[in-house]
């Protein structure tokens, strides 16, 4: 344990939420562009590149937020992830199988990361209820 000042959870989490929101916004923009522009179009390439940058930034900010948390805040996040990870696997597995059976076939598998935000939200809610 170090004596470094503990970052307020809202400080680190605000940046994570902002970047998460921006990235989700870019994914939505990409979905809208798919109907108007062909693959490889410069605008689509630009949005795709920004999405990649957004995902990378999200991971960087999330790990930085975890590093700045104290043991209690980190416990909540790890508990949330412990629930979210298997839930995400089950969700991805179920979507894949349902698509193979003809259900959800109209949905684009590239949008799966958006769906996987739901297991994390469930995990965080469970952690919050346990440790609040």
């Amino acid at each position: 344990m170090t004596n470094k000042e503990v970052e307020k959870p809202s400080k680190g989490s605000t940046a994570v939420l902002v970047f998460c929101g921006l990235t989700v916004g870019l994914v939505v923009v990409h979905v809208l562009l798919r109907g108007s522009y062909p693959p490889g179009h410069p605008i689509r390439l630009l949005v795709t590149s920004l999405m990649g940058l957004g995902f990378a930034s999200f991971i960087f900010l999330y790990t930085r937020m975890l590093a700045n948390m104290d043991e209690y805040q980190r416990q909540i996040q790890l508990y949330a992830l412990a629930i979210a990870f298997p839930l995400s696997l089950v969700t991805a597995w179920a979507i894949g199988y349902f698509r193979a059976e003809g259900l959800l076939a109209g949905r684009d598998p590239r949008d799966l990361p958006l769906v996987l935000l739901i297991p994390y939200a469930i995990g965080f809610a469970a952690a919050w209820l346990k440790y609040r």
Binding site: T2, N3, E71, Y72
Partner: peptide, 9 residues
């Protein structure tokens, strides 16, 4: 060197 929430918990 921890958060107030940690002390409360």
């Amino acid at each position: 060197g921890v958060s107030r929430q940690a002390i409360n918990a």
